[in-house]
Design a protein around this nucleic acid. Structure first.
Length: 464
DNA sequence: TGAAATGTTGGGGCG
DNA sequence: ACGCCCCAACATTTC
């Protein structure tokens, strides 16, 4: 009577229902690297996955049941292991991405026909999509419903020990999988910024609880430590939303602004679950033949943080260096790509997918569509961020821009967010040669804004 | 989870 | 003293 626990995006011991269910007898913990699903993890996510699996592996070994690593199509790997280890029961925590759901259903059916007992659990949703009476296209009523649902269940304690499966089965090593970069090793900034794994996630929650009371105000200022930075930990399931909810609730009385963000995560999960095409196709049909531009040079300038708009460049460089970007700045850079450059949101989505350590199919797709105006409860087409004003408003002292765009750090505050308006004398004094040491703006704000309004207005006319 | 254009108001300079 | 104009400052509308 040995239970196989199949780890996926639930790389933790605490509040892990499948693990708790498995822990009554011998267990075989398994992680499968399956490259046959669409949207396989990007480079930054692979780096994180390596670290997180290493952490989970240590934790499981400590409890007595080492983690088995296998690569291949999930069903085939599971069937191999069932045979090798005399497995009678298989458990896992559910995923909600359409391809994973489909795969999970097949696997469950297939294993059951072989006489195995199979169970799945909810480890990563406050409310699973099928528990709501109706789908939601608008966030506010969705949020009300989530709140009416009341407190999520209390987190489960971790097992204190595990009994390993009697049969020894072979495991690949993390090194075999080459999830991390070698030549060149671009992960230095990621290592300096993050501690993947369950312990790192717990530490992050503690750190955040200290500042969570100020979240509502501080979250908008990228130069401050105002946000939780829990997103990658949540994506990989190193912590559950239930744990986050209860930790914050217990320690911070006024935390609604933050809990609301947890609900946005939930909203995205539900949207993707209901609309499998969300990562590829605009939710609103009117956008189907929107005249997006193609411009490889401008796309590259955006990706590399060379647009000439300091707040945009700072964000894109923070992303490249740390695998993460402050949420306020994500909105600014995304708006810039979609509205100022009129480049397709899917290109931004793809870049984020590859570079974000918190890349999550549902959040990434839903939020890009939100910015582009084609998503659920989306930003209206005329909402075009002015990167200069946004910079002046949310990075007034310039700490963020000066850190990530050091070549313009010597500029005075008055022109930091608009170097092209600085006089020759000021530029000279700051050691800047525009077009040489720092780019001139790749588009003129006023002209780009007018072009976007015209294009999006056209869309509205056609739709009417 | 905007920004810009347009409209309104009221204090103060000035003839 | 009075009316006129200017223009911040704020409010409203529009994109």
């Amino acid at each position: 009577m040995t239970t196989l626990i199949w780890f996926r995006q639930d790389l933790r011991l605490t509040d892990n229902p499948a693990l708790t269910a498995a822990a009554h007898g011998p267990v075989l913990p398994v992680f499968i690297l399956d490259d046959t699903l669409p949207w396989s993890p990007g480079a930054a996510s692979r780096w994180w996955l390596h670290e997180s699996l290493a952490s989970l592996g240590r934790d499981l070994a400590r409890l007595g049941a080492p983690l088995v690593l296998r690569r291949g199509p999930s069903l085939q790997v599971l069937e191999d292991l069932v045979a090798e280890a005399g497995i009678t029961r298989v458990v896992w925590n559910r995923l909600y991405e359409p391809a994973a759901v489909e795969r999970g259903t097949e696997i469950k059916a297939s294993l059951k026909t072989r006489g195995l007992s199979v169970d799945s659990y909810n480890a990563s949703c406050l409310v699973e999509p099928w528990h709501l009476a109706r789908p939601y296209q608008v966030f506010s009523p969705f949020w009300r419903t989530i709140q009416e649902w009341g407190e999520p269940p209390r987190p489960l304690p971790p097992p204190s020990r595990l009994e390993a499966a009697a049969a020894a089965v072979s495991s690949q090593t993390l090194a075999d999988w080459k999830l991390q970069p070698s030549a060149p090793d671009w992960a230095t900034g990621l290592r300096d910024t993050w501690t993947p794994g369950e312990a790192g996630a717990a530490e992050r929650i503690d750190t955040f609880c200290e500042i969570a009371a100020a979240y509502g105000r501080a979250r908008d200022f990228p130069g401050e430590e105002g946000t939780s930075r829990l997103s990658p930990h949540l994506h990989f399931g190193e912590v559950s939303p239930r744990q986050v909810w209860h930790s914050i609730r217990a320690r911070v009385p006024e935390a609604d602004a933050f809990l609301r963000e947890l609900a946005w995560r939930e909203f995205s999960i539900h949207l993707l679950h209901r609309t499998p095409s969300l990562p590829e196709q605009p939710l609103r049909d009117a956008f189907a033949d929107f005249p997006w531009r193609r411009d490889a040079a401008q796309l590259r300038a955006w990706q590399r943080g060379q647009t000439g708009y300091p707040i945009v460049d700072a964000g894109m460089r923070q992303l490249w260096h740390t695998g993460w970007m402050h949420n306020r700045v994500r909105m600014i850079v995304a708006s810039f790509l979609v509205k100022h450059l009129l480049l397709p949101w899917q290109q931004g989505e793809a870049w984020f997918w590859d570079t974000l350590v918190d890349a999550d199919l549902a959040n990434n797709a839903a939020n890009w569509q939100w910015v582009a105006g084609c998503g659920a409860d989306a930003a209206p087409y005329f909402r075009i961020f002015n990167p200069v004003l946004q910079g002046e408003k949310f990075d007034a002292a310039g700490a963020y821009v000066r850190h990530w765009v050091p070549e313009i750090a010597a500029l005075p505050d008055a022109v930091l967010h608009k170097p092209w308006q600085a006089s020759d004398a000021v530029l000279d004094k700051a050691g800047i040669r525009l077009g040489d040491t720092y780019p001139r703006p790749i588009v003129d704000h006023a002209a780009a804004r007018a072009r976007a309004l015209a294009a999006f207005h056209e869309l509205k006319v056609k739709a009417a």
